[in-house]
Design a protein around this nucleic acid. Structure first.
Lengths: 163, 163
DNA sequence: ACCATTTATATAACTCGTTATATAAATTCA
DNA sequence: TGAATTTATATAACGAGTTATATAAATGGT
């Protein structure tokens, strides 16, 4: 196995490493879903899952709950609408806003996935995280919260001040 | 703070969540480097660091040690060469291979960063990961190794078999 | 010596994130 | 009431990853 420099650099290249691992996990998840005959990209299903859980959401709300930029959400929503899984309609009270909801096909896909696909994916990823020292999900949550609370640039300044 | 559906779904959306966090950490790292007057994208410096550490590498070797695809490495190497930080030359023994090395400017940037910038970045990220339950880097290593050892699709099959 | 196969890299095309900006609609203020 | 400002979304352009494929060079087999 070739030398892994991103791993070698530890904290310095954590961002690159997390992205890389995220892409690997997404690619693996993709394979499982394809085996079930589902061609949905891994990055798309939080959109369907969010609406299934919360009911119709606006474009901006979807961006917020998924944690990506609004133009990014707009694009993916457009793709899912084109695939016939999502439906867009202008909000009654505010014509700027667009309401995003599941189509029948979208709801069917979510129901099928909830029953037949996602539990397997979830169990496989859980299996991968077994035997770790401490809860990986809790650590991710701590890091996410910590980053929002005090960005790296502040942490660097504080670190210099304590030295 | 709006509801975070990617977090809610835990293991199911781990891939998306890791990518998202990776992008956040990279963006934060970017800000620190910009404060030092360095416009290098966060994803570029593993290239410089790898060559600084190992001496000149081929395109394929760089892709391997950084953990990305060969066309991805080709593109970034081209950009860094255009920025005057890397130099490409055909290998003596094999005209297919291209040797990638640091230019004077590239070496200067790495030396400066190693002295003035990267320790601060490293300390800030370490600070972010303080107070976690268990070593986050070790957990990442375990997950990476585990994924290579047995991809998710195998883990899903095994999980079904044990039930 | 020649042909088939393999290897290394470049290019094309795609996805999915970003920021910047444009456009339309709603709100606020004087 | 009208203009300025704010808000919601779409589009453009970019970066950085991917897969597929093309091209060139090296290797191996007969």
């Amino acid at each position: 196995m070739p030398h892994d420099i991103v791993k070698d650099f530890g904290y310095l290249t954590l961002g690159t490493r997390l992205r890389r691992l995220g892409e690997m996990v997404q690619a693996n998840t993709q394979l499982i879903m394809q085996q079930h005959g589902i061609d949905l990209p891994a990055a798309h299903y939080p959109f369907l899952a969010a609406i299934d859980r919360n009911g119709p959401l606006t474009v901006g709300e979807l961006a917020d709950v998924i944690g990506i930029s609004q133009p990014g959400a707009t694009r993916t929503i457009g793709q899912l609408a084109e695939a016939g899984l999502l439906d867009l309609s202008v909000s009654d009270g505010d014509q700027r806003r667009k309401q995003v909801s599941l189509t029948k096909a979208g709801q069917d896909l979510v129901d099928y996935s909830t029953r037949e696909v996602w539990p397997g994916v979830e169990a496989a990823v859980r299996n991968l995280c077994t035997d770790l020292d401490g809860s990986f999900l809790d650590q991710l949550a701590s890091i996410e919260d910590g980053l929002k609370l005090r960005p790296l640039i502040e942490r660097m300044k504080e670190d210099k001040e304590t030295k």
